[in-house]
Amino acid sequence: MSTMLQTEKLEYSYPALEEGEEQTRALRGVDLTIEKGSFVVVLGHNGSGKSTLAKHFNAILLPMGGKVWVEGMDTVDETRLLDIRRRVGMVFQNPDNQIVSNVVEEDVAFAPENLGVPTEEIRRRVDDALGAVGMSEFARHAPHLLSGGQKQRIAIAGVIAMEPACIVLDEATAMLDPVGRQEVLTTARRLNREKRITIVLITHHMNEAEDADRVIVMDNGKIAMDGTPQEVFARVEEIEAIGLTVPDTVQLLYDLRRNGVDVPLSALTVDECADAVAAALK
């Protein structure tokens, strides 16, 4: 597997808002390598630096210390800016604020239009992208009449139309209801599996990390934990110490274990958890 994203001793501080105030150190030396084709979930509470990290992945923010490479391209290199942004797509929190046009297909076409793709090719990409997120029948609709989850899928389609190698979802599920969240997550997983697009999902919903390849927990501008979901969520005390909660399933298993029931902590999904509990009760 080759490397998609790489950071080395990455540091970033937000300037002080008023004079005399300290500047906020959002990232304090992040070393991270994300492989191509992987599904990575970045967890952390507000202010942990996870969104700041995400914004470095397509050169919206440039490092103040250290380096960021996207497929080997240094993000500081301005001549490669469009190449970097074309390879790494971003989906943000508020679906309303990233939709440009008042016709769905025109919005999906926005990125290829910017890249100067020929008209017939744009048409093909738009149809493919809308198909990939399951929104083909809404091609001629007005985005403001769609649900939150649907709007967010349009935003994802708008990114897919660039044919990126990686999509970063920066809290893209935070403003959605449970149904909308599920829509977005299923879409992201399918893109990862079928199109081998690298997915970096930034969230504070623990449950969304269940079937990721890798979970990274951020705290105070640093990587606190890094590993498979099973490895990370087994460290229940540490997770709670930095102010996060583990998924309900892990919490249940953890409580059972503390009370002397012999269950493994690695059963993350509801089904696995139920099986584990059933096995222990036999």
Binding site: I60, E105, E113, N114, G116, I122, R123, M162
Partner: peptide, 14 residues
Amino acid sequence: ECRCYHGGEGRTKL
């Protein structure tokens, strides 16, 4: 900007 908008130069149309 994330979707590579960089002004009207070299834009095509759907």
